[in-house]
Each structure stands twice: as structure tokens, then as C-alpha cells.
Amino acid sequence: MINIIVCVKQILDPEMPPGKFKIDPESNKVIPPEGIPLVVSPFDEQAVEAALRIKEQCGAKITVVTVGESSAVNAVKHSLAMGADEGIVVEHIIEGYDSLLTAYILTKAIEEIVAYDLIICGREAADWGSGQVGSIIAESLGIPVVARTRKIEVMDSRLKVEHIIEDGDESLELPMPAVITVSYEIGQARIPTGWGVISAARKKIPSWSLEDIGVDLSQIGDTSSRIKLLKLFTPTRERGCQIIEGKTAAEAAANLALRLREAKVI
């Protein structure tokens, strides 16, 4: 049996209707839309799914860890309801664009967990989409990393993974411990069962502070010492669509083709 750690992040629902997406220009922050609950970032959900498949294949203990505000416990609960074994919340609010700090805190949490053979992360979060945390954790721990994998197979103390490259795949072998990142290529993440939700609700989820895991913020420096957000804004993209009419759908379609010819597009 191996020990797997999955890193998850709680974010605004990326599938929310575009009309609900609003930015506060004063603070350069997204205004959380009312009535739309936060969710686990979809690729992180797929990271949990990947871990569960390994558990089914060869047995594993899965620990889920997140960094965020206290409500991030819901992201952990969701993962436990899917079938993960344990969860931890590190309570600290980080700006989403500071991947180095996020990865540093997660690395400290992982070192505190001690037992790990495999760390799985989503390829990128669906809010800031930086796609760096998994790689930085691997560099900090000094272990190998394969980003964007389609399939993970455990063979004793080694892993065999399918790495996605342009126009194909490559099959790679590496020793554990290692970091792997995944995204939609893994396939759909499972929906928690009713029993899963009940047993997750009964589990104790410890909340750690930065002091608990020995994070020294003066060592790493605050976010503004690395990167500054100057402006967050909604792009304007209305093009003024010309709707082409016709008595029937077929006629409208034929008129469209003629109009495109006129505009020298085809």
C-alpha cells in the first residue's frame, strides 16, 4: 500500500454564468457571486479521481490537503466523500497568483504529513491557471515530477505514466516519491455517493496554522516582493453580430454563404 497526498484548491465555480462574473476595480478582486457555492477546482477533482483509481488498483491511503480560508474544509469534505481517507486544511489566505508561496506552504504541510510516496495535483487551477504548484513542490522536495499525465500505474516502488506531448504521448518510468499532475485527460471524476457524503461528514478534519507546520513567512517574503497585480479587468469583446435572415433555415444558410463571399471570408 502506498501513501498518496492530493493537493486541492477551493475556487469560484468556473461554470458560473458569464453575466455573474464581476470585478471590483478598487480592490482588483472578483466579487463572489451570491448564491453560487465555491467548488473544488475541476482538475484537482480529477487529481482525487486519479488517486482513487490507484487505490482501487493496488491499495493506497489518500490524504487530501488544501490551503485557504476556513471554508476550504468543504473542498476537503468533497474529496473525502469521493473516497479519500483523510484531509487537512492549512488556514491561510493567499493571493491566487503567488504560486511560489502556495507551493511553499503545501511543501511544509507535506513534510509534516511525513509519509508520502506520490503527490498528485491538478495541472492548473481554473481561476488563476498558473499551472506551477505541482512542479514547485517537486523542486522543493527534490523529487521528480511529470506534468500533464493521462494514466498512472504503480509498479512496486516505481511509476509508469503516460505523459501528454504535442500530437501524442510518451511513456515514462520514474521512482517514487514523485509528483504527478493531471487534467481532463484522466476522465470524469466520480460523483460522491450518499454514503460517502455521510461518512465524510463524520470525519474529523484537522486545521493547521502556518506555525504548526513551521512556515516562516519572513523567509519566503510576502507576495508583493515577487509579483504585483496591477490591474484585473473584464475584456470587451462584443463584435456586433450580423444575423442573416431567411424564410427557412436552409435559405438563411445559403444567404450566409453569399454574405461571407461578399465579405471575402470564403
Binding site: 469583446r237 462584443e238 463584435r239 456586433g240 453580430c241 450580423q242 444575423i243 442573416i244 431567411g246 427557412t248 433555415a249 436552409a250 435559405e251 438563411a252 444558410a253 445559403a254 450566409l256 454563404a257 453569399l258 454574405r259 461571407l260 463571399r261 465579405a263 470564403i266
Partner: peptide
Amino acid sequence: FKVADFGIVADYKEALPAFTEKCKEI
């Protein structure tokens, strides 16, 4: 339609064959 330059409001199953046919002609 908010980001399109041209559009038709129609079921593609009816519109697309006619569109392809017209394009062939053009």
C-alpha cells in the same frame, strides 16, 4: 452571438447542408 461577426439562428441539421452546398457552388 456576442462574439460572432455573422450568425444564423437555426437548427444546424437544416442549415448546415444548405450552407455546405452553397459554399461548394461559390
